[in-house]
Write a protein that binds this DNA or RNA. Structure first.
Ligand SMILES: [Zn+2]
Ligand SMILES: [Zn+2]
Ligand SMILES: [Zn+2]
Ligand SMILES: [Zn+2]
Lengths: 141, 141
DNA sequence: GCAGGATTTGTTATAAAGTAACACATGCCC
DNA sequence: GGGCATGTGTTACTTTATAACAAATCCTGC
């Protein structure tokens, strides 16, 4: 959180109350949250009750690398890197929706270069591994 | 298409009229199609007009490796491998929604092994590179 | 301080994507 | 041809996401 605030100051981004609240909410949740779950929290805090409020805050956080959208779940998680420039991969538990962020394998370069050779200009890469986390595996599939 | 029919016979899968129609539709479309676009075609062919009709056919095709869901788009493409067992990565044009299927980099193994070492059992991996295809890049961003 | 532009918020309404549930039909095995 | 699995038709609904536009707020240069 501190890191995020610092990153926003450094980049002259406005971490408004709603945005800060959403980021804190994501940081405290240990699972991916849908926009509507976030919206519930916002409503509870009196910061807005309509979908666009949640989507706007989330869009801001994602655009500035403070949060990530997990495509597989249509849900969001706080970034664990405090917003520094980075490419990430995710381990997504299909049972509890817990998400671990890891470094994007260097080997992905190969894919990008190959694509470029074929005329395709890669801008972003989504890597999401779905499976079962430790706790869920022990608890039974 | 021939390959898909053969694969279904070999695996005792029922490629019913609706399923075959959806697969053909995807094969002929050179872009990813949403479930509702598929549904429109189905309706046009008199094969059903309600969302579950499209989703059931698509679920069948995806479950059996004859089509893939592009998470980034919430849309579907026919597999270019005729259903043989395989892990794929995708190059997704954000402008025209054209999708190219490529082999999943062998290096992804590293990610999977690393996850396993951390107690996470990977079952499937989604790799989608988003960017601009050759044609769209030339036409201007 | 304050005009004027850019950004952010509040709100309504609507679009798009996906699923639950259940009755009915169809194929398949014996 | 009885019984069971699989597939279909349909209704209704949930979840996810955006368009559009007016009001408020912030910044910047004067
Ligand atoms: Zn991150
Ligand atoms: Zn889990
Ligand atoms: Zn494929
Ligand atoms: Zn394109």
């Amino acid at each position: 959180m501190r890191a995020a605030e610092a990153a926003c100051r450094a980049r002259k981004l406005r971490l408004t109350p709603a945005r800060a609240f959403v980021l804190e909410t994501l940081l405290e949740s240990h699972q991916a949250m849908t926009a509507y779950e976030v919206l519930d929290r916002l409503a509870g805090a009196g910061l807005g009750s309509q979908p666009p409020v949640a989507y706007r805050a989330l869009d801001f956080l994602v655009a500035n690398g403070l949060a990530h959208r997990i495509e597989r779940l249509g849900a969001f998680v706080a970034c664990t890197h405090g917003g520094a420039e980075h490419a990430a991969a995710f381990l997504v538990c299909r049972r509890c929706r817990r998400v671990a962020e890891t470094a994007l394998p260097r080997a992905m370069r190969g894919l990008i270069d190959e694509a470029a050779a074929g005329g395709f200009a890669v801008e972003t890469v989504v890597v999401e591994a779905e499976g079962l986390c430790d706790a869920c595996r022990e608890a039974g599939a």
